[in-house]
């Protein structure tokens, strides 16, 4: 085989691998539709449920892509979501102002994110460890506030009528679309995204060209904070109450979503802003399909095993183009 044929074959394989996450989303979507139809369930409702389950994850994970692009890792985003929602509810209950509540939610989310960023960049602490500490602190503070104020109900809440008008697909789609487009623009059409990819791919080289690491780390954390803020607000729109376990699963699911969407965990030039959206919904679709197919209590364990195997398979295939001789770290 001549070089040109080898190159053509390589390029084709690369193309196929690159579209694999989207193809996986399409396949999973189709399987869900077929499964729901075959079982005689209401498809319209099921799709709405899947969208509701996926939208918060997709929003928070899309913001987190900026952090992951730098090759950093933030495990505190679920706790930040809980903390922001808690502060929002407390604000509304104290002031009765929806506008102020939204402001506080976003302020708390961006504030938490900035604190992580400042601790990491100013004091040179590894980002991951900073976010582990932040996760503990934010969860503990939120739990303290919730349990102190929750009383016999066990949680804190805002009146459901307040956010009910927003609990519809139109609002949520608009919120997701606006946030995603802003992120897409910043990531793909400004120097911020380009420089962050550069920093993630080769930090030493990027710094030597004059790119300020701290500045772009702070921007990344602010973008993630905005995602957390929107995620916290959408959480309250779906259920107007907060308990100590709210958003508990988001933290780790973000990592799964981003990787499932075809983005390398090491960030850099192969980072994709759409990875979180694609991966988040794929993961939710996969879990729902498995729960539809595998019944019974024991089935939850089995469906998690199948989900994990599928996850590893997708990541394996999407990473086929980037194998090195040495073991990856």
């Amino acid at each position: 085989m001549d070089n040109e044929a080898i190159l053509r074959k390589y390029k084709l394989r690369q193309k196929l691998i690159n579209i694999l996450p989207v193809a996986a989303l399409a396949v999973l979507f189709t399987i869900l539709v077929v499964t729901v139809q075959a079982k005689g369930y209401r498809l319209d409702m099921y799709l709405k449920i899947v969208f509701n389950e996926g939208v918060v994850l997709a929003v928070v994970a899309t913001g987190a892509v900026f952090i992951y692009t730098l090759g950093s890792f933030d495990i505190s985003l679920g706790a930040s979501t809980l903390f922001s929602a808690t502060m929002g509810v407390m604000t509304y209950n104290a002031t009765g102002s929806l506008a102020l509540m939204i402001l506080v939610i976003f302020g708390a989310a961006v504030g938490c994110s900035l604190l992580s960023s400042v601790l990491a960049s100013v004091f040179h602490i590894p980002v991951f460890v900073t976010t582990v500490a932040m996760m503990s602190v934010l969860s503990a503070i939120a739990a303290q506030i919730i349990t102190t104020n929750g009383g016999a109900v066990g949680g804190i809440s805002i009146p459901s009528a307040l956010v009910k008008p927003l609990d519809n697909m139109g609002f949520k789609i608009a919120a997701l679309a606006v946030f995603w487009l802003v992120c897409f623009f910043v990531f793909s059409f400004t120097k911020i995204g380009r420089r962050q990819k550069f920093l993630g791919g080769n930090p030493v080289c990027a710094q030597l060209t004059g790119i300020q690491v701290n500045k772009y780390a702070i921007i990344a954390f602010v973008m993630a904070g905005l995602g957390v803020g929107l995620g916290a607000f959408l959480t309250l729109v779906y259920t107007p109450s907060v308990t100590a376990t709210t958003a508990g699963s988001i933290g780790m699911n973000i990592v799964v979503a981003i990787v499932f969407g075809g983005m390398p965990i090491s960030g850099g030039p192969r980072s994709r802003i759409y990875a979180a959206l694609v991966g988040g919904f794929s993961y939710i679709l996969l879990n729902n399909i498995l729960k539809l197919l595998i019944d019974s209590n024991i089935g939850y364990g089995v469906s998690q095993i199948v989900s994990a195997v599928f996850f590893l398979a997708v990541v394996y295939v999407t990473g086929l183009n980037y194998r090195s001789q040495m073991l990856p770290r």
Binding site: V22, M169, K172, L277
Partner: peptide, 15 residues
């Protein structure tokens, strides 16, 4: 493709 998928998901649900 991704957007179409997500929006279809949302639109079908929204109906």
């Amino acid at each position: 493709l991704a957007l179409v998928m997500v929006l279809t998901l949302a639109a079908c649900g929204g109906s």
